[in-house]
């Protein structure tokens, strides 16, 4: 009896916490239509909301940063397999920008642990979902994104 009262609160808080993830996805990489429900959430991981882009090269770090400031616990950036971008260089540029090697980058102000870059091709839906689960586990370990009184995440400077 006493054991349960001591242990329970912490555990329930841990299991109840579900990280909220925003996925910015290149529409030519993983087959989004098959993976997403009517609400634009992943069917197999309903905590992941999906925004799709014509190419991962369109996704700039400022957008990921905005998402973190808006209180998302994690941001997933998904592009085609490295070496094979439909638009030649989109995924290379996205990778360089998020690594801070190419303008514009604002990566230093972001919590890098909460941003994951993924390069997956069309037939790799399953591998993509696997990585999403890994990323979720990593975010659970990190805990919720710190938020200020106004509900927005604190800026890291």
């Amino acid at each position: 009896m006493s054991d349960t009262t001591q242990v329970e609160p912490a555990e329930t808080r841990d299991t109840a916490y579900e990280p909220q993830v925003l996925a910015l996805i290149c529409e030519r990489s993983v087959p989004i239509a098959e993976l997403v429900d009517a609400e634009s959430r992943l069917r197999d991981a309903s905590n992941v909301f999906v925004l799709r882009f014509p190419c991962s090269g369109m996704i700039k770090p400022a957008l990921a940063q905005l998402a973190l400031e808006e209180g998302w616990d994690g941001v997933l950036v998904v592009g085609c397999a490295v070496g094979d971008c439909h638009f030649r260089e989109g995924n290379l540029f996205a990778r360089e920008r998020f690594r801070g090697d190419r303008a514009p980058n604002k990566f230093r102000r972001m919590d890098q642990r909460r941003v994951a870059l993924l390069w997956r091709a069309i037939p790799e839906g399953d591998r993509f979902l696997e990585t999403v689960r890994e990323f979720n586990a990593q975010l659970v370990e990190l805990g919720p994104n710190v938020r200020n009184d106004d509900g927005k995440a604190a800026r890291r400077r």
């Binding site: 882009f53 014509p54 190419c55 090269g57 369109m58 996704i59 700039k60 400022a62 439909h86 638009f87 260089e89 989109g90 540029f93 996205a94 920008r97 303008a103 514009p104």
Partner: peptide
């Protein structure tokens, strides 16, 4: 223009 949006990503 290929409508890929790489320029959108490049503009600060």
């Amino acid at each position: 223009c290929s409508e890929c949006g790489v320029c959108v990503g490049s503009c600060d």
